[in-house]
Design a protein around this nucleic acid. Sequence first.
RNA 1: GCCCGGAUGGUGGAAUGGUAGACACGAAGGACUUAAAAUCCUUUGGCUUCACGGCUGUGCGGGUUCAAGUCCCGCUUCGGGUACCA
Length: 997
Amino acid sequence: MEYNFRQLEQKWQLYWKENSIYKTTENPSKPKYYVLDMFPYPSGAGLHVGHPLGYIASDIFSRYKRLQGFNVLHPMGYDAYGLPAEQYAIQTGQHPAVTTKINIARYREQLEKIGFCYDWDREIRTCEPDYYHWTQWVFIKMFNHYFDTKHQKAQSIELLVKMFETSGTEGISTNCTEELSFTAQEWNSKSEKEQQEILLNYRIAYLADLKVNWCPELGTVLANDEVSEGVSVRGGHPVEQRVMRQWSLRVSAYAQRLLDGLQTVDWTDSLKETQKNWIGRSEGAEMNFKLSQGELEVFTTRADTIYGVTFMVLAPESDYVKICTTPEQAAAVEAYIAATKKRTERERIADRRVTGVFSGSYAINPVSGTEIPVWISDYVLAGYGTGAIMAVPAHDSRDYAFAKHFGLDIIPLIEGCDVSEQSLDAKEGIMKNSGFLNGLTVKEAIAAAKKYIAENGIGRVKVNYRLRDAIFSRQRYWGEPFPVYYKAGLPYMLDESKLPLELPEVDKFLPTEKGEPPLGRAKGWEVEGFPLELNTMPGFAGSSAYYLRYMDPKNDKALVSPEANQYWRNVDLYIGGTEHATGHLIYSRFWNKFLFDLGIVCEEEPFKKLINQGMIQGRSNFVYRIIFIINDGRRFELFLSYKFYNEIKNNILYPFPLLFESWFSTLNSEIKIQFGENYLIDNGIDVESYFTLSKKIREKSLDETVNEIFQEDLNIDLLPFEVIVQNIHCDVNIVSNDVLDIEKFKAWRPEFADAEFILEDGKYICGWAVEKMSKSMYNVVNPDDIVEKYGADTLRLYEMFLGPLEQSKPWDTNGIDGVHRFLKKLWSLFYKDDNLLVNNDLPTAEELKTLHKTIKKITFDIENFSYNTSVSAFMICVNELFTLKCNKKAILEPLTILLASFAPHIAEELYHILGNETTVCDAVFPVCNEEYLVESSIKYPISFNGKVRFMLELPADMPKEEVEKTAMCNEQTIKQLAGASPKKIIVVPGKIVNIVM
RNA sequence: GCCCGGAUGGUGGAAUGGUAGACACGAAGGACUUAAAAUCCUUUGGCUUCACGGCUGUGCGGGUUCAAGUCCCGCUUCGGGUACCA
């Protein structure tokens, strides 16, 4: 019987499905383990081989845990709302629900082929009403809660209203958009509308006029993590700043808890670091600077530099601008602000020119008492701190650039520092020019200055975070509708019993004539005569709590039942890409903490352990086309094999003579064979002049020749053609081991149908490069094709074999034969032709050693996610058993179970061949018995000055002194020493002997 | 600029401070075959030697150590994150 992977994989996939092998239920008698893959967005392009990398890794771990007796939850579903489906709908008129459904079906089909152990009964889709019901429900909860900073916890908004009614804002501690202050009496005398408007200032889901990232091309706003370098992450469209009334989530309220929580999770340091930076906690002081009218409040982390403040800077959007601008400067300030508004964020980033304008006012330094000018510049951000800074040009490079540009004073504050060329930003040195801080180190000075400021009522110690609230409105169709209606312009939540609020139909997926979002087109989009919200929720809405829904996916009474949540608690292992480091992984932690505050979930952190799989890059292939354009306008094209292209490339300055050289010396025969004796003549190339030129080249150095050609000696007209050399991406699927399949290439694109080639050794060798895997580079490899050709088990093993899980690496289908051969070799331990070889003989010590060595290695590797080395270990094991001609059940059965996590189909088949009638998934994972690994002798490397000279086999239990003695008496040692006496002898028992001479 | 992570044969990669290059691909040679495929065997870092062997070798320059790919210091370079965050 042959290893017929096609038939065998199909058979077992069907068996697993029909017998619900992967169905999971809450089973209190077993310990739970929750393994999660990052939610895929079902794109129209389907999966490429990069996608399943993490899924295979998590699948191996899930199966391993199950074999170890855990009740494993390993679900899969789809992040089904999203921009691409909507963009596609705009272009084609096809409803996004339709295309999404098709894409999901394709994903499902592709995933099923790979043999994952997903419990498909738990599949969820964010675009389905039973799912987004709970997205909307959480939103209502967020609207009805505020964040109590004192208790660091979400609290019911009713509690806040009660406090307002009894004591106003007196003594409250909340996170809010704007600090407000009113008495109980004032509150109670306000109208309902006024009260609602005030409450928005405190709600965790709130509506506010915010400066947002507006992307005109996409016609929507974007969250900070959806914008990079001033353009949208999806599509690369420009983004500009605009003030709009938008829903937002008060993520920033949770900044400290999000930061603290990082200490409790088992994530990589680099990922934690990225989140830390994104949260951006900085401790400093808020200080007040007196103006002739009013005060300026600034935030600084360098209170120690207070004596070096020579000017103040306001953000153009700051409210302080109005206060500070004097009538004389009004026109200049207005012009400056108008100019800044026009620039998109991208322009501001790209163009680092120093710009600014003087406001006309002066402020008083509260410590030194000096008078300093107040400027306005866009290098100060309105959204951070107070939107105003104290500038210390000597010790801040941005302030320095500004001061130099506008000729402002620079006062150095550190002993011995030179600020004539640049500022000294480092926090080190001894203070000078700083009054009471003189002589202190910077660190001491920071503390002393803070203390001084607090004690003298100049300001207070303050912590700031870079983390912004998440803008939650999208002017889009394909997303969750908000459960919100408007009464007199104020938002109200639908009653929970009305959920889900289903996405309505529209005639077109475009904004209305009035510029409203697409939902403005929906008929009857209102409740009891009140209009419903026209925005929809962003992509991260549906993906922020999906891991909870998997615990109880069909529940129509709750997001997740307390029982299911108590059992599954949180994700034990989460595998996914780093691209979610600042988006999804912040939002879902925030979301989870909010639900934790409400007592809906029992764990504060959603993802205990997180592994980032590396990206699979593409490996592109190139063909090289050389085009000759003859003076008379005719052109010839030839495809050069890599070797010849390389010659030309290495001498790019000299294409003409070199090309000719290589034609005549290297390629002449090939040209004759390929194109006939008279190729050059037939093509109107002046053979005579070429011979002359060629002769000249051979006689002189290349440099000389080129000089001649391009200067005076030879007329440039002598060269009858122009040469263009191109490297063209070529579909990797028609290339094998860099050898081009010429027939397939000709059929690939019509323009290549008549292509002609210069070959090396009868083959066309392509060039290659590692690039992003993308359609445009023709380097996309589809897992379906691999499964078809080699089988799912080979694909799974090969993806793991490529290299360490967490590292980025290029996909190169070359090499897959190795793992496929391994499976065939394993099979050959069971069958030769149609004869089953397996017997019940007792295993030898050597065979047991091979097996148990492998058990030990595989167990260790799985626990450490070092899957590439486990595949190697399997290969070594099978190679050894093959050499030993071992066909014993006692060895092969445990090996089959070991392999079952990696290659489940073949393992299931072999397990049944061995006489088992239940699934290998429920076998017991073998345990290593160290007794079999004990060695009786050790081959000691004997080294001299660290260099190994020979090996010496000695009994394993030989004591150190004996080893030394035996080694020293050895004749090879005596030979190496050549009469010299060793200075020192180092013996590491069981390891090595080193003799120092 | 700042913060992370890398750099080992033709290629992917392996190596608790203890024989660098496991395992695999590719390549070369051989066996089987009418032939091909498949399979099996041998060789395969570089230089050198008829050979035994020798020298050299983990991006570069130093250092610690009996012993460094691995630890320390200083560079070069390639990825990734972040970008006026006061």
